[in-house]
Computed example of a mutant assay.
Amino acid sequence: MEFNRRILIVDDQSDLREQLAQLLLNSGRQNKTAQLVKSMRARLMGFVDAPDKNRDAMPKYDIDTAGQGQEAFEMVQVALKQNAPYAMMFVDMRMPPGWDGIKTAQEIRRIDSNIEIVMMTAYADYTQEDMVREIGSPEKMLFIKKPFHSEEICQFAYSLCAKWNNLMIENIRRRWLEKLVLNLRKIKQQDTSSETYHRIMEAYLGFFHSTKGFAAEWLPDRKEWVVHTFSGFPEQKVILKMLKQNQTQMLDTNAQSKIEKLQIIPLREHGTSVFIAIADAETSEDPTWFQCVNMLNLASLDQIEFIRKIEQRLSGNLPVQVKELRQIADGLKRKYADDPEILKLSTLLNEI
């Protein structure tokens, strides 16, 4: 998923809108005074500073501005229709003659529940409690008093854009996890069609944000590999060659492993030897995700059903989700106290 740094600035004063926009567009760059000092230092002392290694890593924001709340509302509507939502917005409290900041935030929150909102005010028209009550979703709303420091604005933008993107990734993974659980359930019910394996591979690719992988099966009677489905490889022959070269290692493993930069996840059920391979997984540096998913593969049908029902209860609210995960861990311990693999999964969930 491409990182979203779209920001909407809503203020009736055009000069303030422009100042905030320029501040964010130049975030992380040296100001003119610092540049002048650096230039004089080079001329007088013949000393040239080393290039800034972090220059290219500075955030690059996509900034839009609106002078009235109604205009901002329409811009958010268009952004949603174009599947290019804003990650956050700065909203002034007083914007005559139209909607004030509270009304603007209320209406925008009604159509976009994910947007992060920063309320800007120099007055005491509303208390923080009033704003929370009127707008809702306090976990996605912050307040800042005018006059504010430029570093505060930059930090809000950086942190809230990162928060928005992390929550979107989390929501995407939850949806892919639901699809994965449903299709693993089919495997447990002996539905071993190529279409089922394709859906499982697709769910893995989506969950780990990868576009390259395959599902292959070893047929011991015929002593050969069958590739059920693949994505991102030029042709099936490339996969078969790799499988033959790593055959011993793959058939000896009962857990997630890594072969030729591919994460290998075995699906062993009803005597089959099916393997899902995922390349370039975003979470490959953190093996915990793969450990959890691998334990899910090894679970029995009633365990899969139990996990699926609890997973459906997870909400998008991060604190609530963590609480739910810990409840899942306790439930797993009680229901499957004699299963060592499920107990490992329970321990991992409790560590979140």
Rank of each mutant, 00 (worst) to 15 (best):
D56M: 02
A50Q: 14
D52P: 01
R43Y: 05
N31Y: 04
R55Q: 11
D52Q: 06
M58A: 06
L44K: 08
N26G: 14
M40G: 02
L24W: 06
D64M: 10
K53Q: 09
A34W: 04
D49E: 14
Q35D: 03
S27V: 08
Q35A: 09
K38N: 11
M58E: 10
T33F: 13
N26Q: 15
N26Y: 10
R29V: 08
R41I: 05
R43G: 03
L24C: 11
M58G: 00
L36T: 13
Y61D: 02
P51D: 06
Q30P: 00
A57C: 03
D52K: 03
L23M: 15
K53A: 10
T33R: 12
F47S: 10
D56S: 10
R43D: 14
K53E: 12
A50G: 09
A57K: 08
R55T: 06
S27Y: 04
P59S: 01
K32P: 08
V37L: 10
N31P: 06
D62C: 00
D62E: 14
D64H: 14
S27C: 09
F47Q: 14
G46Q: 14
A50P: 09
N54L: 07
D49F: 02
L25N: 13
K60I: 08
Y61K: 04
D52W: 00
R55E: 12
N26C: 07
A50C: 01
N31V: 06
D62H: 12
K60Y: 01
N54R: 05
D56K: 04
I63K: 00
Y61E: 04
N26L: 13
A57G: 01
D56A: 06
K32R: 14
L23F: 13
A42R: 15
A50D: 14
F47R: 09
Q35H: 02
L25D: 11
G28H: 01
F47A: 11
M45L: 15
F47M: 09
S27A: 15
R41G: 07
P51T: 07
D56G: 02
D49M: 02
K32F: 12
S39C: 00
Y61L: 01
K38Q: 15
M45P: 00
K38I: 04
K60D: 03
M58W: 04
D52S: 07
A50R: 12
L24I: 08
Q35V: 10
F47T: 12
K53L: 13
Y61C: 05
D64T: 05
K60P: 03
R29N: 12
N54P: 01
V48L: 08
I63R: 02
L36E: 12
R41F: 06
N26F: 07
R55Y: 08
M40R: 07
R41Y: 10
K60R: 13
D64C: 10
N31C: 07
R29Y: 14
D49Q: 04
P59I: 01
L25Y: 07
L36V: 14
P59G: 02
K32I: 05
N31W: 09
L25T: 08
F47K: 15
N54Q: 03
R29F: 11
D49H: 01
S27E: 06
K32H: 06
D62P: 01
L25Q: 15
L23G: 13
M40N: 05
Q30W: 05
A34Y: 02
G46C: 11
N26A: 10
V37N: 13
P51F: 02
A42Q: 15
L36G: 00
T33N: 09
L25I: 07
G28K: 00
A42P: 00
L24H: 04
Q30A: 10
D52N: 11
